[in-house]
């Protein structure tokens, strides 16, 4: 162990919204931004019951595949006023949503190219530490087939839990459905990062 021991995680508890539900953090971009899309989903527990006290956070690259962060060394362009962070606390039905844009492809390890994806953190009462997952897009069939993280998962059923399904547009905005199952037959693939 290093001299500076890590700070352990603890649950967000049932009152998380007091501290974490600030402003319109579901809107990574405004609805009128070109390419804006909506992601909708529910969080479920091991008995398929909705989780009304969860918080989902997303982190993503911009449309060119560039992260707004000094450790992204690539030459891709930044987009003014695009930071790539979103947060949504679930409502009483376990529902969360985001309005964002589809990120570009980001380089992976070993000269690979990752499919468009969001990094996802899941927090809730009853979770002592967050679970980490990713969200991919169902209409990126070619890119998804080349993605090293997706391809590292042998079980197609498990892999598919990471793919948000394109559903009917709402008011002209593309929509994707992405449910998170903390446990059970449809359990989401979670990552050790």
């Amino acid at each position: 162990m290093s001299e500076f021991g890590i700070t352990a995680s603890q649950t967000v508890g049932p009152f998380l919204k007091i501290g974490l539900a600030q402003g319109d953090q579901e809107y990574v971009v405004a609805e009128n931004v070109k390419g804006a899309l909506r992601i909708d989903g529910h969080v479920y527990d091991g008995q398929g019951q909705p989780v009304p006290d969860a918080m989902i956070e997303i982190w993503q690259a911009n449309i060119y595949g560039k992260y707004d962060h000094p450790d992204d060394p690539t030459d891709a362009e930044l987009v003014k006023s695009f930071y790539g962070f979103g947060r949504s606390c679930t409502d009483k039905n376990g529902n969360f949503f985001f309005v964002t844009v589809k990120p570009g492809r980001v380089v992976g390890l070993g000269n690979t190219l990752q499919a468009p994806h969001l990094a996802v953190n899941v927090f809730a009462r009853g979770m002592l530490k967050q679970q980490v997952t990713r969200l991919y897009f169902s209409d990126e069939i070619q890119a998804n087939s080349e993605d090293p993280v997706l391809n590292s998962i042998d079980d197609a059923g498990v892999r598919d839990t990471l793919v948000a399904s394109k559903v009917n547009d709402e008011n002209g905005m593309p929509c994707y459905k992405f449910n998170i199952h903390l446990q059970g037959e449809m359990e989401t693939a979670f990552f050790d990062v």
């Binding site: 008995q47 790539g84 980001v106 993280v149 359990e187 990552f191 050790d192 990062v193």
Partner: peptide, 21 residues
């Protein structure tokens, strides 16, 4: 009921993991 039963899948860090808000 809120803990996954499968072990998490280990991934090596890409630009996605080493950047952040």
């Amino acid at each position: 009921l809120r803990s996954p039963k499968r072990l998490p899948i280990k991934i090596n860090h890409t630009l996605t993991e080493i950047t952040g808000p």
